[in-house]
């Protein structure tokens, strides 16, 4: 089976029903996507598949085909952060940070198609991602900052 992740093609021999999350983490060593719940309750495993946010714990690898997968590692790097990541740094969103890969991937996919979100839009787009530390006030602020930054770019 072939998977294209962050622009690199990988060949792997796994069950078709293995969730993408575990293929990424345990087979390919790509650990930005996190395991939190396994049932799409937390969103910590969010990746982009052809640009759309997807909970990788729900996505059987055998159903991905040749779609392009992007993980947080492919969104930006510490040296060259994506606007959403930069906004997360500027607002010091993270506490434990474990959910934030997923939050950032969700926000990045959302802003790609909704460059000028209202408060209500953000509340609808970002409420499927769980943060046990309670960084939600900062997530709201960071999404707005990122939107403004992307608009200006």
């Amino acid at each position: 089976m072939e998977l294209s992740v962050n622009g690199t093609s990988y060949s792997l021999d796994v069950e078709e029903d293995m969730p993408l999350l575990w293929a990424l983490r345990d087979e390919l060593g790509i650990t930005g996507p996190k395991y939190g719940c396994g049932i799409a309750q937390c969103g910590a495993c969010t990746v982009h598949i052809d640009g759309q946010a997807v909970r990788s714990c729900q996505m059987p690898v055998g159903d991905i085909g040749n779609a392009e997968i992007t993980t947080i590692e492919g969104l930006g790097t510490p040296e060259a952060m994506h606007a959403v990541q930069q906004a997360w740094v500027d607002h010091q969103v993270a506490q434990c940070g474990y959910c934030q890969s997923g939050q950032i991937m969700q926000a990045a996919a959302f802003l790609e198609t909704h460059p000028e979100p209202s408060d209500e839009d953000i509340d609808r787009a970002m409420s499927s991602n769980l943060c046990r530390c309670g960084t939600y006030p900062r997530i709201r602020a960071a999404v707005k900052t990122a939107a403004a930054k992307l608009q200006g770019a």
């Binding site: 799409a40 997807v54 909970r55 729900q58 055998g62 159903d63």
Partner: peptide
Amino acid sequence: AEYIDCGTCHVTSTRPNTTPGAPPH
């Protein structure tokens, strides 16, 4: 599509639904 796609959690797949609490597909 305006907020969060159904498909973000409810992936498109013909495989059986087996995990309690997981979004059906």
